[in-house]
């Protein structure tokens, strides 16, 4: 499956979707005015990936900032992966947050409360 890499911009994150490794990475800032435009191709990719996934799928989310518009799209990604998990595939979410960034920690907790996926909270030192 094709690997997609999107470089970061002032309002959108770096993204790496690697089908061969079963690895998804979203890193940086996600604050676009219209998040659907940005995330729809990524969600479509996950749909395709889910048709013949790797045994293990890992998603790293390491966001510095994200807006409420992005929060819905990130949830949509998790929901796609939740389906994969329900079908018996291994999925691991790694949620990174900076030390002292309570809001980003709580955002991780929000997702944990909504989706049923193995979810690891990883604190990064400043």
């Amino acid at each position: 499956m094709e690997t997609i890499i999107r470089e970061d911009t002032p309002k959108t994150p770096f993204v790496r979707l690697d089908g061969e490794k079963g690895f998804v990475e979203i890193k940086g800032r996600s604050i676009p005015e219209n998040s659907v435009d940005f995330y729809k191709p990524l969600i479509d990719w996950i749909d395709q990936y889910a048709k013949s996934p790797q045994e293990n799928t890992v998603i790293n989310i390491q966001l510095e900032y994200f807006n409420t518009s992005s929060s819905k799209c990130i949830l949509d990604i998790f929901k796609k992966l939740e389906l994969l998990h329900k079908k018996g595939h291994k999925v691991q979410v790694n949620w990174y947050y900076e030390e002292d960034d309570e809001d980003m920690f709580e955002a991780g907790e929000d997702y944990q409360s909504i989706i049923n996926l193995p979810f690891k909270m990883i604190e990064m030192e400043e």
């Binding site: 005015e33 219209n34 998040s35 659907v36 409420t68 518009s69 929060s71 819905k72 799209c73 949830l75 809001d103 709580e106 929000d110 409360s113 909504i114």
Partner: peptide
């Protein structure tokens, strides 16, 4: 505020404007 935020995040679809109905709530929460 925290519970309402989770409820809307988990249950409501994105509005046409992409706002998701969470903007003001997020401001109050943060």
């Amino acid at each position: 505020v925290r519970l309402l935020y989770r409820d809307i995040l988990g249950n409501e679809s994105i509005s046409e404007k992409g706002g998701g109905g969470l903007g003001m709530l997020d401001i109050v929460r943060k």
